[in-house]
């Protein structure tokens, strides 16, 4: 227990929380943007996976991690548009369409992995690149803070930056206002001349791009390879974090940190003699618990209004 406490209160632990939070945070922001526009994006999981794979494959062939990142994000964003096409134009139920895209991504990436790497498990035979770590000049020399946030993967910094950018986009730009109007009441938005479908397409594309950033971090930052189904539910956890964070970018950030904490904690507890299975359950159980508490609270508020 003492070992655990010492580990938990060390600055490296805080740094590891930020590291494991990164993919969840990106996906959560993606969930916020889509949900505020009135389109539930349950394909976040698949979008992350596709981007993780594309990033590795493209970076191996071009020799540049950044080109890999751009391609991964572009493909994930295109998947968002595809989801939009089926939901908005062909009127597919968006949840079922999301499930279809997730299935396609899970097995499709394995299919493609075999073609490019001749392996159905991991991409280690590919010489893929990683997104570099960045150091913040002055902060890295401050004793505790430096160890926590002084040196992190570039995408981790970008994810923190994205919280602000998404907030400004949603609440301080005309397009953000239109996006929220569409999600609030599509008919009212339509009546004042906003093209509902166009805004929702844009929201899904942005949502896909954000999920793609998270996926790319998994395969090109967190580790340096792609392995089958490596997202292991982070896209779904993001949906829970989004609900927990009250559909707000900053709330989503705090909720993501909470899930990152659970994730990091489970990594540490594996060194103790707790069966690994229980430790691995923690993030999912906490998600479930948080979801129940949040929904219960929300229901109470609604009742007290009546």
């Amino acid at each position: 227990m003492k070992v655990l406490l010492e580990a938990v209160f060390s600055p490296t632990f805080a740094a590891s929380i930020l590291r494991v939070t990164t993919p969840i945070l990106f996906a959560t922001l993606g969930a916020v943007v889509a949900d505020l526009a009135g389109v539930v994006n349950i394909a976040l999981e698949g979008m992350m996976l596709v981007s993780a794979f594309t990033g590795v494959a493209v970076s191996a062939f071009t020799g540049s991690a950044w080109i890999g990142l751009i391609c991964g994000v572009a493909v994930a964003s295109a998947l968002g548009l595809l989801l939009g096409y089926f939901h908005l134009k062909l009127r597919t139920n968006i949840i079922l369409a999301g499930i279809a895209l997730n299935l396609l991504a899970t097995e499709g990436t394995v299919f493609l992995l075999y073609i490019v790497a001749h392996d159905k498990g991991v991409s280690s035979s590919l010489a893929s690149k990683v997104i570099p770590d960045w150091q913040i000049p002055i902060i890295k020399d401050i004793p505790v803070l430096g160890a926590m946030v002084g040196k992190q993967n570039a995408l981790t910094y970008l994810s923190l930056l994205a919280v602000g950018v998404v907030y400004l986009f949603l609440y301080k730009t005309p397009l953000g206002l239109r996006l929220r109007a569409v999600g609030e009441n599509p008919d009212a938005a339509d009546s004042v001349g906003i093209s509902v479908h166009k805004v929702q397409f844009i929201a899904l594309a942005i949502s896909g791009a954000l999920a793609g950033m998270g996926g790319a971090h998994l395969s090109m930052g967190y580790v340096s390879w792609f392995s089958r189904n490596m997202t292991s539910g982070r896209g779904f956890i993001a949906l829970a974090a989004e609900a927990l964070g009250r559909r707000h970018p900053v709330g989503g950030f705090i909720a993501s940190l909470f899930f990152g904490l659970a994730d990091a904690l489970s990594n540490y507890m594996q060194s103790l003699r707790v069966p690994g299975e229980f430790v691995q359950m923690i993030p999912y159980l906490l998600t479930l618990f948080a979801l129940a508490v949040y929904s219960g609270r929300q229901m109470k508020t609604r009742r007290s209004f009546k």
């Binding site: 779904f236 949906l239 979801l291 129940a292």
Partner: peptide, 17 residues
């Protein structure tokens, strides 16, 4: 039924659990 928690998210989480 009790708290109106999305069964979609909770059932997905429970699959892992």
């Amino acid at each position: 039924s009790r708290w109106n928690a999305s069964e979609l998210v909770s059932s997905l989480m429970l699959n892992y659990v």
